[in-house]
Nucleic acid binder design. Structure first.
Lengths: 203, 203
DNA sequence: CGCGCCATGTAATCCGTTACATGATTGA
DNA sequence: TCAATCATGTAACGGATTACATGGCGCG
C-alpha cells in the first residue's frame, strides 16, 4: 500500500489536516511507515483531484489557515480496494548492520561505538512507543494495539541482541589487546575469513 | 553507507563479478540491504571510473564473458572513510503492518489471511538464514556472525509475536460470530475507536 | 520446447527526501 | 533574541526498481 492508502486509512479515524496527519503517523506507524511533508501535501492534492477526499479551509487568526481533509465514500472504496491487493514484502535497511558486517575493516573499538549509537537509537524508539502505551490501550483498535506490540517486541528483542553483541565484541577487543586506548588509524586487516563465494542458489 | 561502500566491502572478501556480488548480497545481507542489477552494474562502472576498483574481463566459452572486479588501495581508503561517517537511521517499511493497522476496515478474516501470508514470508526468510548457518559459523568474521544472529533474532521474535497475534485475532473472529465462513464484502465499521488526535509533541 | 541459469547493460519511471519560501506566535 | 510550533506548498535532486535487450547452454 502506498502513501495514498495510508492517508486514507488515517482519515477513517477522523478528519485531519496534512500537518496533523504527519504527526499522527510519526507517533503511531512511524517506525514502519514514514512520510515527509514533501510527499504528504502533494498526495493529499492528488486525492482531492480524484475525489477520494474533500477539503474545508479553516481560517485561523494568529496562525496559518489550515485545510481539513475528510474521507469521501469513493475514498473509502479506494482504501478497501488497496487493502485487497497482495502484500508487498517488507523492506528493511540498516546502516548499522552493514557497518557491523564490515566490522573487520575497523576493529572492535569502532564497532563498540556503532553499538552504543544503535542502542541509543533503539532505546529512544522504544521510549516513544512506551509513551503512547496508555493512549493505545485505551483508544486504539485491537489491530492497532497488535501493531504497537510488534514494535515493542522488535525493539526489545533487538536491544537484548545488542547487549549480547556488545559482550562478544568486548571479548574481541580484549583478545586484540585489552588496553588499547585510541586505536585510531590502524584498521584490522581481514585475516582470510570470507564467506564462501562458491556457494550458489541459496535463494 | 550507500551501495558503493557495500560493494567495496564485499570486494574486501575477494574478487567478484557483478553477478556474484548480487548473489552474495542476497544470501548474506539480503534482509537488511537489497540491490538490483539495475543499480549494481552502473555503480560498479562508477567505482571503476573513480579508481576504487579494477576490472579484468574473463572470456568464457559457452557462456557470457564476465568482468571480475578487484579492490584497489584507493577503494579500500574510500571504504574506510565511508565507515567513519555517522550512522544513518534504519529504515523499515512493512506493508503487512500498515494493513494490520487498518484491520478494522476489513475485519478478522482478512487479517487472518494477512497473518498467514506474513508467517510464510518470515519462515522463508528464516529458512534462508538457517541454510547458511554452517557456512557463517565456519567462514564468516565474528561481526558477520553477529549480523546473522540479528536476523535470526528478528525473525524468531516476530514469528512468536505473530503466533500471539493470530490467537488475538481468532478471538475477535469468534466474538463477531465464530461460524462466519466467507464474510466477504462486508467490512467492519470503525466503532469510534481512534488514536487521540489531540496528542502532540510525542517525538 | 520452454524455462532457468549465466552475465551484462541501459532507459524509463517512480517514489521519495531535502531544501527552500512564507510568516505570525509563544516560550526559554 | 533565538528557537520551536503551526501550516502549507514547490522544485531540485537522488536513489532505486522495473522492464527491456542479448544469447548460448542444460534440464525436464
Amino acid at each position: 500500500m502506498d502513501l495514498k492508502g495510508v492517508l486514507l486509512g488515517f482519515l477513517t479515524l477522523g478528519d485531519q489536516t496534512g500537518y496533523e496527519l504527519k504527526q499522527l503517523m510519526e507517533t503511531s506507524v512511524g517506525f514502519f511507515f514514514g512520510a515527509s511533508f514533501g510527499s504528504i501535501y502533494p498526495t493529499l492534492k492528488a486525492l482531492e483531484r480524484e475525489g477520494s477526499v474533500t477539503v474545508t479551509e479553516v481560517i485561523q487568526s494568529g496562525r496559518p489557515n489550515k485545510k481539513v481533509y475528510s474521507l469521501t465514500s469513493a475514498g473509502r472504496r479506494y482504501l478497501l480496494q488497496q487493502l485487497e491487493e497482495p502484500l508487498k514484502d517488507e523492506s528493511f535497511r540498516s546502516d548499522f548492520l552493514i557497518h557491523l558486517f564490515f566490522g573487520h575493516m575497523k576493529g572492535p573499538d569502532a564497532v563498540l561505538r556503532w553499538i552504543e549509537r544503535d542502542r541509543a537509537y533503539r532505546e529512544a524508539r522504544l521510549g516513544v512507543l512506551k509513551q503512547i502505551e496508555p493512549t493505545v490501550r485505551r483508544h486504539a483498535t485491537p489491530y492497532q494495539l497488535l501493531a504497537w506490540e510488534f514494535g515493542v517486541t522488535y525493539y526489545e528483542s533487538t536491544l537484548s541482541w545488542l547487549a549480547q553483541a556488545e559482550q562478544q565484541v568486548r571479548s574481541l577487543s580484549g583478545a586484540d589487546g585489552t588496553a588499547a586506548p585510541g586505536n585510531h588509524g590502524s584498521p584490522d586487516r581481514p585475516k582470510g575469513e570470507r564467506t564462501d563465494s562458491k556457494r550458489r542458489g541459496m535463494e
